[in-house]
Amino acid sequence: MLYLVPTPIGNREDMTARAIRLLGEADLILAEDTRTSRPLMQHYGVETPLRAYHAHNEHKVVDGLVAELKEGATYALITDAGTPGISDPGFLLVRACREAGVEVSCLPGPAAFVAALAASGIPCDRFHFEGFLPHKKGRQTRLQYLAELPHTFALYESPHRIAKLLGQLEEHCGPDRLACVAREISKLHEEITTAPLSALKADYAARGKVKGEIVVVVAGR
């Protein structure tokens, strides 16, 4: 059995009782970064061993993990924050488990783009989740595609590129297109601002250095 266990994207109180129980009952916890996850496990008194499972080793270890699961092991997969497989490692292992007949269950839990969509005030009955854009090759093509969508779309972006992204979105979508920048969701300095792209671009261009995890939500055309 493989459990996908979401972990808090900010406030540790967002951890569910079921998640804590299953992490404690698992034979092993597969963690994106054991250094990040160990303090969280210690906070909740979870003593299950941790093993690294991340983007740099998943292709090498996935077959061995599936073999162990087929022999009867129960593992929990976590990432640094949020739901495994959503812009984080997880897909390869889940696919391999499905193909091998290993049962997989995903607990409901935090996902930054879902929280940003719900809090943005921008229609979210239909939406497109893009995740991170390419840094260089293909970036303009994706931006052109997104600008033409008739429904809301959501992006992830790093803090040192947010001003540049907002400028590119304004160029492709127009200065009056409504958007939202959600920063540090569920953390002490949470900030969610909804305004036209021109205003958001000016705001973040004037800030200089920005910190934190960022989701950008943009209204459809």
Results as ranks from 00 to 15, higher is better:
L2C: 12
G10S: 09
R12T: 11
I20F: 08
G24S: 09
G24A: 11
E32I: 04
T34W: 05
R35P: 04
R35A: 13
R38L: 15
R38I: 11
G45K: 14
V46I: 15
T48G: 03
T48S: 07
L50H: 10
L65S: 04
E68S: 14
K70G: 09
G82D: 00
P84H: 12
P84R: 09
S87N: 05
D88E: 05
D88W: 13
L92F: 03
C97S: 10
C97D: 03
R98S: 07
E99Y: 03
E99L: 11
A100H: 05
G101E: 06
E103A: 10
P110C: 14
A115Q: 11
L117P: 00
S120Q: 02
C124H: 12
R126D: 05
R126I: 02
F127P: 01
E130W: 04
E130R: 05
H135M: 01
G138Y: 02
G138L: 03
T141C: 00
Q144N: 10
Y145C: 04
L149A: 05
H151Q: 15
H151T: 15
T152G: 14
A154T: 06
L155N: 01
S158I: 09
S158T: 15
H160C: 03
I162V: 15
L166M: 05
E171W: 13
E171D: 11
H172M: 14
P175S: 15
A179C: 15
V181E: 03
V181Y: 12
R183P: 07
E184L: 15
I192P: 02
T193G: 00
L197M: 00
A202D: 14
Y204D: 04
K209P: 01
I214G: 04
A219W: 06
